[in-house]
């Protein structure tokens, strides 16, 4: 069997045909050819562009009231309709996207930093492992959403608090993933070779262990982005997110819930935006996992 796998190894054939190509570049090329990664990338790019250029593409300020134009269904005048106070749904959903992506990005960055830090310390210095992982386990013992609600309730309603709450919930999960891949990489013979060459801990972590443990983290972060967006919307919907009239998707949906019968678009449109964002991120994550996870790669 080993022989069959060796012949199948896609990298083996790359070798002769295209010399001097860094593995990173080859991976990127394969990612861009992956069907679900492509779809996710396009969807996410659309949402991202909308959020980035919100002031240019929205017809009006998202908080501007227009009492004469309440409950307008989607039409050419109001592409996504208006809400109970006559605010443009298009503006509100697009600005909502801005907030969701900001929170998602912040949570992902904080997780990447602290998850990597805790995970790699825990996985590399086994003496710290027990302590760090018990704290991790304690946090992970709470259901994510309940913990987020608790933290948000204690800290009060604001954007930074929301980011903090989501980070506290998700960092232990990220740290676990980093830790497990660090433990695997630490055993690799190239790490042993670096030790034998006299390398110190910092050098080994930076040059050998971290660059090779990033694949699962990257996959995790793309899913984490989706969870963060989803959890933020849930908390806002429950009234624990940013204060109205801040147009977060959760806030819009919470308000729209009362008018579900008469004006279903109020809740449906941010709902759809949320669903599309989460789906786009999941597709990206699937693509990353397929390409970066070596176990799946061999089977392809």
């Amino acid at each position: 069997m080993a022989e069959a796998v060796a012949t199948l190894d896609p990298q083996a054939s790359v070798a002769a045909a295209a010399p001097r190509r860094s593995p990173r570049w080859a991976t990127l090329r394969r990612l861009l050819r992956h069907r679900s990664f492509q779809t996710g990338l396009v969807l996410f790019a659309i949402i991202l562009v909308a959020a980035l250029f919100a002031p240019m593409i929205t017809p009006s300020d998202p908080t501007k009231l227009a009492m004469r134009a309440r409950f307008k269904p989607p039409s050419w005048d109001f592409l996504f309709g208006t809400d109970n106070l006559g605010r443009s749904q298009l503006s509100r959903v697009v600005y909502g996207a801005q907030l969701s992506l900001m929170i998602g990005t912040a949570v992902v960055v904080i997780n990447a930093v602290f998850g990597t830090l805790i995970g790699s310390l825990s996985g590399y210095f086994r003496r710290l492992d027990n302590m760090l992982m018990r704290i991790n386990d304690a946090i992970m013992a709470f259901p994510a959403i309940l913990l987020a609600i608790g933290v948000a309730a204690v800290l009060g309603r604001s954007m930074p608090n929301m980011i903090l709450a989501l980070s506290i919930v998700y960092i232990p999960r990220t740290a676990r993933i980093v830790r497990s891949s660090v433990i695997v990489i630490r055993q690799m013979e190239y790490v042993q070779a670096a030790v034998a060459a006299g390398a110190g801990h910092w050098r080994i972590l930076r040059r050998h262990i971290l660059p090779n443990s990033m694949a699962p983290l990257l996959v995790q972060l793309s899913f984490l982005f989706a969870y963060a967006v989803l959890t933020e919307a849930t908390l806002s919907f429950l009234g624990l997110g940013a204060e109205p009239p801040t147009p977060t998707w959760g806030n819009i949906m919470a308000e729209g819930r009362q008018y579900m019968r008469e004006a279903p678009w109020i809740i449906a449109i941010p709902g759809a935006a949320l669903a599309i964002t989460v789906m786009a991120l999941n597709l990206l994550g699937d693509g990353l996992r397929d390409i970066l996870d070596p176990r799946l790669r061999i089977q392809q």
Binding site: M1, A2, E3, A4, A6, T7, L8, Q299
Partner: peptide, 18 residues
């Protein structure tokens, strides 16, 4: 040696090729 096709030959006989 590896890549000689010996295992692939065996798998073809068994109908076990991927």
């Amino acid at each position: 040696e590896s890549g000689s096709g010996k295992s692939v030959t065996a798998l073809s006989i068994m109908g076990l090729l991927p």
